[in-house]
Amino acid sequence: MRPLPKIIPLGQIPRRNFIKGALLSGIASGCSSKDPFTAAAKEEAVQPSGETVKLLSTTGEIIEVDKAYLKPLEEIPSITNVAERMGIDGKKFVMVIDLSRCRNLKRCQEACNHAHFVSDAQNWIKIYPMQEAEHTAPYWQPTTCMHCDDPPCVKVCPVDATFKRQDGIVGIDADRCIGCRFCMAACPYSTRVFNWDKPMLPPEVMEMQYSSETSCPPKIGTVSKCDFCPDMVRKGELPHCVSACPNGVFFFGDLNEDVVTNGSETVRFSDLIRDRSGYRLMEDLGTKPRVYYLPPVDRLFPFENESKTPEG
């Protein structure tokens, strides 16, 4: 576990200031009353309720405190389906995956599966052992959804269940999906999975209202995939895979700001791609992915199968 300020850089912590910045650079998605940023900005001091609760101190004394202060902080109100489908105005999310740092630890996968209730057989993130040809060097290649700018999956969806947002994210509305699986056939990156069975979920998750930003709760008979965690971004935090990787393989950021970060390093996106010869997967298909790769040169780790997964 790394110290916290490194995962979420200081200054991002007070949400209100993040919001100020966001509003300033014309980010906050059309200041409606449902807007989470403004709602969070209104966060007021807690009003004492008059009722008291007894609390034990570390020295064994009993302290009586006002009940109002025990309430957990107000959750960010959920945003509407329409707002989710629009995405965050003025943003163009982008990911850079540094292949030279990946050693197949699968922390990204674990964190992703944990956060989205993904079953082990249906990982949204896969770390492929790749070798282009017999005599070329093997390397680990983590894949997420590519969030293509010309998404073949979105093109073929008959009911707008999967959609492209203005911030570049390709989302899925599991309440709309009819389960025809055309998008799965259309995706050349095999990134989509289908809930063949009733998802195994804790009861409190099952009751949650579906959000395409968290892709939770997953629903039987519908398609799921990596969603780029816009819910985390709205909170000013990084997607789960990015913050979980101990080697800083994943960089995430906004192309409009030309900056990506893996939590501990913050770099110019254009510099990174230029200096390290970044590329995208299957460029010839014309899908225009939003996920960039840095080639596995000067690798930090030798290619070894450390997670003991059988190679496919």
Partner: peptide, 12 residues
């Protein structure tokens, strides 16, 4: 949904 939200871009 095929009729409520039909999307002419889709070959389906």
């Amino acid at each position: 949904h095929l009729f409520l939200y039909s999307r002419l871009q889709s070959p389906i």
